[in-house]
Simulated assay, not measured.
Amino acid sequence: MAQQVRDIMTADPVAVEPDTPVQQIATRMRDESIGAVLVTDSGKLRGLVTDRDLTVRILADGGDVTDRTVGEACSREMVAVAPDDDVDRAVQLMRSKALRRLPVVDNGQPVGIVALGDLAVERDPGSALGDISAADPNA
């Protein structure tokens, strides 16, 4: 039997509304050692914002970020998988779309996230990426 996405996903991902200030999300990412946050609108997945998105789409513009929101920074072209999908499907989507993170959605509601590191730890734990992904985050 093929392994399912639910077996390797991070459950209960952090999700915020699009009007959440980017500074609040950056602080939360730092404090919780996470690199991505799902953006939802009334519980429905709207986008994904990563630490890189905050840098490239917000900080690189310069100026005051006080009034900038997660909705401005998030990726909007969403590709997602279901918890019951085979892990091979997640791998194929990540490979074909060059994604590092993939939201997991069940009946329109985000329930998890699968990262490239999760796949490395599961599929090739002795690899460099597997080792790095399994290590404790930097303080």
Score class of each variant (00 low, 15 high):
M1T: 08
A2S: 09
A2I: 09
Q3G: 11
Q3C: 07
Q3S: 13
R6P: 04
D7S: 15
A11G: 15
D12Y: 10
D12K: 14
V16A: 03
E17Y: 05
E17Q: 05
T20W: 00
P21V: 00
V22S: 09
V22N: 03
T27E: 11
T27V: 01
M29G: 01
R30M: 02
D31T: 01
D31I: 00
S33P: 01
S33H: 11
G35N: 03
V37W: 02
V37Y: 04
V39H: 13
G43L: 15
L45E: 10
R46M: 14
G47S: 06
G47L: 04
V49N: 13
T50A: 05
T50L: 06
D51E: 14
R52G: 09
R52Q: 05
V56R: 09
R57K: 14
L59E: 10
A60I: 01
D61K: 13
G62K: 02
D64V: 03
T66G: 14
D67E: 13
R68C: 11
T69F: 00
V70Y: 06
E72I: 01
A73M: 03
S75M: 03
M78Y: 00
V79H: 05
V79G: 04
A80P: 03
V81G: 09
V81Y: 00
D85I: 09
V87G: 08
V87N: 02
D88F: 10
R89M: 05
A90T: 06
Q92C: 02
R95W: 01
S96V: 06
R100Y: 00
L102I: 11
V105K: 15
D106T: 07
D106N: 14
N107Q: 14
G108W: 08
Q109V: 10
Q109R: 14
P110A: 10
P110H: 14
V111N: 09
V111G: 12
I113F: 08
I113Q: 12
D118E: 13
L119A: 13
L119R: 02
L119S: 10
R123A: 08
D124L: 07
P125N: 08
G126W: 08
G126M: 10
S127G: 14
A128G: 07
D131A: 10
D131S: 08
I132A: 10
A135E: 08
